[in-house]
């Protein structure tokens, strides 16, 4: 009887997990970001993102799991340019996850907000609920002209029409690293062993990826940085991406 009660208590626990196995987190140092968009291109290559074409781009249907948001501050000539790389925040309390009627998006034991393409029926509710606008819908089945289909990543699926997709933190690389760790009979993945495509390609090393559960990991140190903040923190979505930015008080 007591086990049943314990089980019930476990199932009543908000978020279900006491602690994630890994708590994958990314920190992005905005003071270092130059807005070069190397991460965008790397993501495109790694994750088989379709190229939607000029007309569809004009209709705002481009699929870019990471994008550089560009904001101008002030008026010319006294003007400043700000960049924010925006990608799925892998929120612990993700608004998108409550929406899906078929569990196509859920929270896994690594603290990742996953999207299961095979289950998706395309209600698009998750995209409406997402405050960060980082979910992308396959309006058509996109095709790659020859010989571009030769460069598709074999570790990542190609999505069909009617399916929602978004940044996975390069889950295929996380998977490989975890498998490699198991093959070497290590209990955990080493810090810095996994680099999502965007992190790997960042020339200024503005992005750091790692496990927040490990207090000595580089990303944990970055997360403790006083410059750290979350985008749209007031919505209480508890995102997994920490942005670092020095606040300019001079105006």
């Amino acid at each position: 009887m007591s086990t049943a009660l314990e089980k019930f208590k476990k199932y009543r626990k908000p978020g279900y997990y006491d602690k994630f196995d890994y708590h994958w987190t990314m920190s992005i140092d905005l003071d270092r970001c130059t807005g070069c968009e190397a991460c965008v291109v790397a993501c495109q290559a790694e994750n088989n993102l379709p190229i939607v074409g000029e007309q569809q781009f004009a209709m705002r249907r481009e699929i870019k799991w990471i994008r550089i948001e560009r904001y101008w501050e002030g008026e010319y000539p006294d003007i400043k340019l700000q960049f924010i790389p925006m990608l799925c925040q892998h929120c612990d309390q993700a608004p998108c996850e409550i929406a899906c009627p078929v569990f196509a998006t859920y929270h896994n034991q690594d603290g990742l907000n996953t999207q299961v393409y095979n289950r998706c029926i395309g209600t698009r509710t998750c995209a409406v609920y997402c405050p960060y606008e980082v979910r992308f819908f396959n309006w058509f089945t996109y095709e790659w002209d020859e010989p571009l289909e030769q460069q598709l990543n074999p570790d990542v699926t190609v999505r069909e029409k009617g399916v929602m997709e978004k940044c996975t933190f390069c889950i295929q690389r996380i998977r490989q690293a975890k498998d490699a760790a198991k093959d070497d009979s290590r209990r955990r993945v080493r810090d810095g062993e996994i680099k999502p495509a965007c992190v790997q390609s960042c020339p200024t090393e503005a992005m750091v990826f790692g496990d927040l559960n490990d207090p000595d990991s580089q990303v944990s140190k970055m997360a403790r940085n006083p410059r750290g903040y979350h985008v749209l923190e007031e919505l209480n979505t508890t995102p997994s991406i920490v942005y670092l930015k020095r606040v300019h008080t001079d105006g």
Binding site: R60, R61, R124, A127, V128, E133, W139, F140, K161, G162
Partner: peptide
Amino acid sequence: EVGVGVAGMNRSAVW
């Protein structure tokens, strides 16, 4: 046959 793209919806207005 073609996909929901034949409608006018786009990103941020997916409904």
